[in-house]
C-alpha cells in the first residue's frame, strides 16, 4: 500500500532522510519508531504530499506523491504530530468543514458525521466548541477528521503524545478498530511499548534510514542479530562492567545491584566465548541468560547495532 524507495530529503546540510526504503502492506498497522530527529515526521510529511523529496520515490496506493499529489490526498488521512483546531467552531461544524473540503455531498454528510463521532466516542460532544475539548478528545476528533473521506491509508504522526493513560488506551482501541475497517495505518511514536500492542509490523528508523523492519514478534525476538543478556555475578560487578564494555559485540551495558544487562551481537558460539572469558577472569557467575526483549529493548539493540556498524 505504501512503497518508499531510496527516499532522500535534505534541509541545508542536514540529511533528514538518507535513501529510506520502506514497504507497508495493505491492511496492516505499521509502527514507525525511532529517536527524535530520526526522520519519521519528514517521511510522513512526504507521504502526505506536504513536502517534496530530493530524491527517490514514494507511492501510496500506487500513486506517486510528487506526480499525483491530489490522488494521494484522496486516499490518505493525515494527522500531524502537532495540530491545532479552529476557534469558534462546533464539533459538527469542524467535521462538516473537512467533509466539504473533500467534496463530500451535503446530503450524506450529516449521517456520516454521526457515525464518525460515534466511532471516536464523541457523540455527546456534537454541539461543543472544538477549542474547549480536552486534548484526548481533540486527538480523537482529529482521527474522525482523518476518516471523513473514507481513506485507504491513515498516516498518524505521534497520535498518542501528550495523552494521559486513559486517553491513550481509548486511542489504541480506536486504532485497533481501524484494522477491522481494513485501513492501512502508518503510525509513529516515540513511546515504544504502546506501538507493540497495536502494530502488526514495526520499522525502526535512525538517522534517516530504516535499520530494521518486520513483524513485531520478529523484531522483539531474541537471537535475531542482537540479543539481550543478563549476567549476574557474586562480586566485582563494577570491574565486570568495565570488562564487558571492552569486549567487541557488546553495547548498552546497564548495571544494577546484582548484575548487568547488555546487548550482545553474535552467534551462540561467540556468546559462549564471552561467558568463558568472564569465568576465566575469575568472576563467580550466578546467571548468564538471554532475556526476551520488549520493543523498547529491541529498539535499543537495533539502534546500538547500527551505531557499531557505522563506526
Amino acid at each position: 500500500m505504501i512503497q518508499v524507495t531510496g527516499l532522500v530529503k535534505k534541509f541545508g546540510k542536514t540529511t533528514a532522510l538518507d535513501a529510506l526504503n520502506m514497504a507497508v502492506p495493505k491492511g496492516s498497522i505499521y509502527g514507525l519508531i525511532g529517536p527524535n530527529g530520526a526522520g519519521k515526521t519528514t517521511a510522513m510529511s512526504i507521504l502526505s504530499t506536504l513536502l517534496l523529496p530530493d530524491g527517490g520515490t514514494a507511492l501510496v496506493d500506487g500513486h506517486d506523491v510528487v506526480a499525483e499529489p491530489m490522488a494521494v490526498r484522496g486516499v490518505i488521512g493525515y494527522m500531524p504530530d502537532f495540530f491545532g483546531v479552529y476557534d469558534g467552531l462546533k464539533t459538527y461544524e469542524y467535521l462538516d468543514f473537512f467533509a466539504a473540503a473533500y467534496y463530500i455531498p451535503e446530503k450524506t454528510r450529516k449521517p456520516l458525521l454521526g457515525e464518525l463521532l460515534e466511532l471516536v466516542n464523541l457523540s455527546d460532544k456534537y454541539d461543543s466548541y472544538v477549542d474547549l475539548l480536552s486534548r484526548g478528545m481533540k486527538q480523537r476528533l482529529a482521527l474522525a477528521r482523518c476518516l471523513i473521506h473514507d481513506p485507504k491509508v491513515l498516516i498518524l504522526d505521534e497520535p498518542a503524545s501528550g495523552l494521559d493513560p486513559r486517553a491513550r488506551a481509548e486511542l489504541k482501541e480506536i486504532i485497533k478498530h481501524l484494522k477491522q475497517l481494513d485501513k492501512t495505518v502508518l503510525i509513529s511514536s516515540h513511546i515504544l511499548p504502546e506501538l507493540g500492542e497495536v502494530c502488526d509490523q514495526v520499522g525502526i528508523m535512525e538517522n534517516g534510514r530504516l535499520i530494521a523492519s518486520g513483524p513485531v514478534e520478529e523484531i522483539t525476538a531474541t537471537g535475531k542479530g542482537a540479543s539481550l543478556l543478563r549476567i549476574e555475578v557474586l562480586e566485582r560487578i563494577n570491574e565486570l562492567a568495565d570488562f564487558v564494555k571492552s569486549r567487541n559485540r557488546v553495547s548498552n551495558v546497564e548495571q544494577d545491584e546484582s548484575g548487568l544487562r547488555l546487548i550482545f551481537r553474535g552467534d551462540p558460539r561467540e556468546r559462549g566465548e564471552l561467558l568463558r572469558e568472564i569465568v576465566e577472569g575469575g568472576w563467580a557467575v550466578t546467571e548468564f541468560s538471554e532475556t526476551k526483549r520488549n520493543l523498547e529493548e529491541a529498539f535499543m539493540a537495533v539502534t546500538g547495532e547500527a551505531d557499531v556498524n557505522e563506526h
Binding site: S45, T49, R73, I76, Y78, F82, F98, A101, Y103
Partner: peptide, 10 residues
C-alpha cells in the same frame, strides 16, 4: 498548526 491538515485535503 492548522495549515498542514488543510493542505492535505482536496
Amino acid at each position: 498548526q492548522t495549515l498542514n491538515v488543510l493542505l492535505t485535503t482536496k
